Simulated assay, not measured.
Amino acid sequence: MAKGILLVLSNATETGNEEEFNRWYNEVHAPEIVQRGAAVSFRRFKSSGVPLGKGIPEPGQEYACVYEIEAETVEDVEAIAQRLEQTKDQSQGVSPDMDLTSVRASFMVPVTS
């Protein structure tokens, strides 16, 4: 059972094809991350545009992808990052419709008390 997440925030390019960006992300990129053994599943989201509250800005990225990962510790995350590095030749590349300057990502592990 997955215990951590990889959170990736991103945008389509302003001049690109947003529909193609979403097709590529849903059908190529995210499944590839799972196939490469870095995650067990994923879900994608689009910002609603509704702020959480007054004075709490939304991030600048319109899209989020939440990957479930088998990680409880930093060492587990390091192993996943290494797996991604070792399998980078299996990548089908990045869509020209993805704004790489907008990408923000974080491996997150559970908080235990």
Rank of each mutant, 00 (worst) to 15 (best):
V8T: 05
D76S: 06
E72M: 12
E19S: 11
M98C: 07
G37K: 01
C65E: 13
E27R: 08
T112M: 09
G55A: 07
E19H: 09
Q82S: 12
C65P: 04
Q35I: 00
Y25V: 04
Y25M: 00
E19R: 10
A2G: 00
P96R: 06
V66W: 11
S91M: 05
Y67T: 01
T101Q: 14
G4L: 03
G37M: 02
G4D: 02
P110Y: 07
A38K: 13
G53M: 10
S10Q: 06
E75A: 15
Q92H: 14
E20F: 06
M98V: 13
F45R: 01
G4T: 04
T73P: 06
D97L: 11
I56A: 11
P59H: 05
T13F: 03
V74Y: 10
N11Q: 05
K46P: 03
S48Y: 03
Y63F: 15
L100E: 15
K54R: 13
G53N: 10
I80L: 10
E58I: 15
T13R: 12
V103W: 07
E62L: 13
P110T: 01
V50H: 09
D97M: 10
I69K: 13
Y67G: 02
K54Q: 13
E78I: 08
E58W: 06
S95H: 02
A2Y: 05
W24I: 12
E72N: 09
V40Y: 07
I80E: 04
Q90R: 07
I5S: 13
E85Y: 11
A64V: 15
S113I: 11
Q61S: 12
V28T: 10
